[in-house]
Design a protein around this nucleic acid. Sequence first.
DNA 1: CGACGGACGATTGTCGACAGTCGCTCATAT
DNA 2: ATATGAGCGACTGTCGACAATCGTCCGTCG
Lengths: 225, 225
Amino acid sequence: MTGLGLRRVPSLSRREHVAEILREAITSGRLKPGDRLVELDLAAELGTSRAPIREALRQLEQEGLVASYPYRGSEVLGVSQDEVEQVLVPIRITLERFAFGKALDKLGHADLDALQVLVDDMLVAARSGEAERLADLDIGFHELVITRSEQRHCLQMWKTIQPRVRAYFRRDAPAHSDPAEVARQHQELLDVIRSGDRDAVLDAVKRHIHIHLAPPRGAESGDVA
Amino acid sequence: MTGLGLRRVPSLSRREHVAEILREAITSGRLKPGDRLVELDLAAELGTSRAPIREALRQLEQEGLVASYPYRGSEVLGVSQDEVEQVLVPIRITLERFAFGKALDKLGHADLDALQVLVDDMLVAARSGEAERLADLDIGFHELVITRSEQRHCLQMWKTIQPRVRAYFRRDAPAHSDPAEVARQHQELLDVIRSGDRDAVLDAVKRHIHIHLAPPRGAESGDVA
DNA sequence: CGACGGACGATTGTCGACAGTCGCTCATAT
DNA sequence: ATATGAGCGACTGTCGACAATCGTCCGTCG
């Protein structure tokens, strides 16, 4: 009975709530790679039974944040730089190019305004040094467009890989770019979207993600090894 | 009580078993897009309780084969041609290029022999018209290499998208290429792997998947719309 | 005759209990 | 002292029951 931070909100299933909490704890670094996840402990902590916990763990497993071994429990996973740069970033580009292309015709004025608000907020967050909030806004920007694309498989895959990317950058990557620059990049992208030039958008998305996630570190080339 | 096709095999958890059965039913087309999945029915059918069923459904949901709506159940999803060609294929290429690159140094003689056996079997399957078996061998070939790459995130993502690709081709795509050609393509790829030339392998993988999954249908280009 | 609203059936979400498995400890024998 | 293996906790896997929710059917009222 308890309910430690758990609200009686009916709009969000318990499982979704649990997954959210755990995902946040992992991507934020509060739970580190190698940490063990004991179902009973988590259930007690979140004031629920093990059933929702187990289902949430299955989901996090598919997201690559957690690994489970039969009868031996689950642990938090790490993410390698190679994986992020050579796999996750290209996949994100593929997904977003497809989604942005599909979304172009469907973005209305209200959507463009909402995107502009997000960008404006980014600037505010950047100035006041709220890194967490900046990251949330960044994610919100992309997620809004992908949602508008009405490609649910695409959105779902994006949500699947996103937490891993975020976990990597929050845990292992040093602050990699000027916060204000992040806001500026999104403004640029939004401007291109407004132009309606499909090819330009696809190209901008590619550059945007590359710049944003994998800033040039010098000339690395012999990476696959 | 019963146990309709359910073995007391302890090596495979019930959940994994359920997921396997459902995945097969969906990719084979026995369950069609729009079909409803009722937990209690599935549980009865598979001689188990709802718990493993639910966890399996969560997994299939992440794989994009089914969708669930709170308090309203789950249904089988369809896969569009656009999604396969513009999203799943590029993602598969990204994943496999990365994995094959990583696996190159780790493939021993035994592995190469195993791959050769698979290719030989493909030829047999192709000749006797066993399409199912041919597809299984195809998947086995790629999965073996990816497993050897020892990139578990990569393997897991591959397993996540693979069922969708298979479902699409089994359901909606007409027999798209000569069975014998499939075997030949893999022989070629294996030969390049044997050569050890990394760049050649990466290039071969790209071509292999493109050819195999998206045979030229003429000149389509205005697709994003 | 059509709109509204409560009751019902079907199905999902959650819970607590029990069974099975794993790793470790500790007594025993060599 | 070391190897062995039975016993024991701690935990996960599974089950059956109960609570919550949705869609629909049907009776009532305008």
